[in-house]
Design a protein around this nucleic acid. Structure first.
Length: 409
RNA sequence: GUGGAUGUAGUGAAGUGGUUAUCACGCAAGCCUGUGGAGCUUGAGAUCGGGAGUUCAAUCCUCCCCUUCCACCCCA
């Protein structure tokens, strides 16, 4: 009796945590003026052709009854691009976000499942670095809203055009192989990296060139003519205005797996470096029929990260109040309904259990208030309201209960 | 796909070639006919991951498979 490998169950407590993350994703996106969209779970397989080699391998694809080759969405950007291309009447700029479950058939392990939630945020319609900066800002704001600080994470930034120019300058052709190597950089020593580079038939001058630019920490150190370099300079300048420089790190080893990126690329990492990347994205100017920039942000790594940092809040039940009837369930139902009419979330004991059992239940479920209703109370036309955190009790009217709960929350 | 580890109630752990497989937490009921987080009592819950073999007898020994986890690979 298990769920499908790599697929997850969310019990109420876990779902609450997930909702906490969703709420922050949404509120930051809305704060910057992004609109929520939704995309289909199935897409034609071909739309992922531009994603690179890795993705098609991991795609859940099948032929449907109409002989169409379909795929469970492995990511959102191609769908966003499709939606943008499809409807030419959209007003620019297009600022969208979405939260969707995505699917990838891959080896299950820490931080990687086959089904995950991905928050995606995109700014389409301009090549201006201002949009790259805003998009990166939202990513940082999400992480800080989750109470993470510059000691916990950083955003590594690079630019595809600059990388290409650097390679061209060194007359290196096997860009792909090197890109893969560079991606591993944080996990291998410089020495190993060197021998690997030599194995790829690079001259010693080329090896030195590659190692050099990996160690660039500041843009000033880069001495070539490149549009990518200019873009990066501009981007860092704009981000200064958002006062976010402390989160940023120039890192030319950032490559990103997707082939469709054309300019800025960035990735959010935990500073200790023992987790996978938390979020990642970049600029894609040839995918949607118009330039765009965006990122994807999965829930799995984030969850582990927040748990390790002990930043997942203890969340109360969504229920506001639990009613304990004492041998008069029939009289309590109308009271419960009255509270619900005032938009209060009410749970009512239907099992006719004892007071102590019910209090125990309310306590375990972390319901903040309990209403005890018995003979004595009904005689006086009152109810007994108990605050479960303080233990305080008072005899009061239903109307006052409504007021108290509405003010208290 | 490659390599390593793992598997005993819901969870975490013990244990033994031999009748009814322990313990803790959790769950349920009672002590308490109107007051929780504690205590005590009782109860439910496991074909000991699956299959084959060795044996009079296997949860335990052997083999195969599966699962889950970790690393590589890659990525959210």
């Amino acid at each position: 009796m298990t769920s499908v490998k790599g697929f997850r169950d969310f019990y109420p407590e876990e779902k609450r945590t997930l909702n906490y993350i969703f709420d922050i994703w949404k509120s930051v996106a809305q704060k910057y003026g992004y609109q929520e969209i939704d995309i289909p779970i199935l897409e034609p397989v071909e739309i992922y052709n531009k994603s690179g080699e890795e993705i098609p391998e991991q795609i859940y694809s099948f032929i449907d009854k109409g002989k169409r080759a379909l795929a469970l969405r492995p990511e959102t950007t191609p769908s966003v691009a499709r939606m943008v291309k499809q409807k030419s009447s959209l007003k620019k700029p297009i600022k969208w976000y979405s939260i969707s479950q995505c699917y990838r058939y891959e080896r299950v392990q820490k931080g990687r499942s086959r089904e995950f939630f991905q928050f995606n945020l995109d700014y389409l319609g301009t090549k201006s670095m201002e949009s790259d900066a805003e998009v990166i800002t939202t990513l940082i704001k999400i992480l800080t809203s989750l109470k993470l600080t510059e000691n916990d994470f950083c955003i590594k930034i690079s630019n595809r055009k600059l990388i290409n120019d650097l390679f061209r300058n060194l007359k290196i052709l096997c860009v792909k192989d090197i890109a893969r190597l560079l991606d591993k950089r944080s996990r291998i020593s410089d020495k190993e990296l060197k021998t690997e580079l030599v194995n790829l038939d690079l001259s010693s001058r080329q090896v030195k060139g590659v190692l050099d630019f990996l160690n660039f920490k500041e843009l000033k150190q880069i001495k070539i003519e490149s549009e990518g370099l200019d873009e990066l300079k501009e981007l860092f300048d704009i981000l200064k205005r958002y006062k976010l420089t402390k989160f940023l790190k120039l890192d030319l080893s950032i490559m990103r797996g997707f082939d469709y990126y054309t300019g800025t690329v960035f990735e959010a990492f935990d500073k200790k470096g023992d987790l996978r990347s938390i979020a990642g994205g970049g600029r894609y100017d040839n995918l949607a029929g118009m330039p765009g920039v965006g990122y994807g942000f999965g829930d799995t790594v984030l969850n582990i990260f927040l748990e390790e940092k002990k930043l997942l809040p203890e969340l109360n039940s969504e229920t506001d109040i639990f009613i304990i009837p004492i041998k008069n369930l029939d009289k309590c139902i109308p009271i419960a309904e009255e509270l619900r009419k005032s938009n209060i979330k009410v749970n009512l004991d239907l099992l006719k259990r004892s007071i102590s059992k019910n209090l125990d239940y309310a306590n375990k479920e972390k319901i903040p208030y309990v209403l005890i209703i018995g003979e004595d109370e009904l005689k006086k036309n009152k109810v007994k309201l108990k605050n479960m955190f303080s233990g305080e009790e008072k005899l009061t009217s239903v109307k006052n209960v409504i007021k108290e709960i509405q003010n208290g929350t």
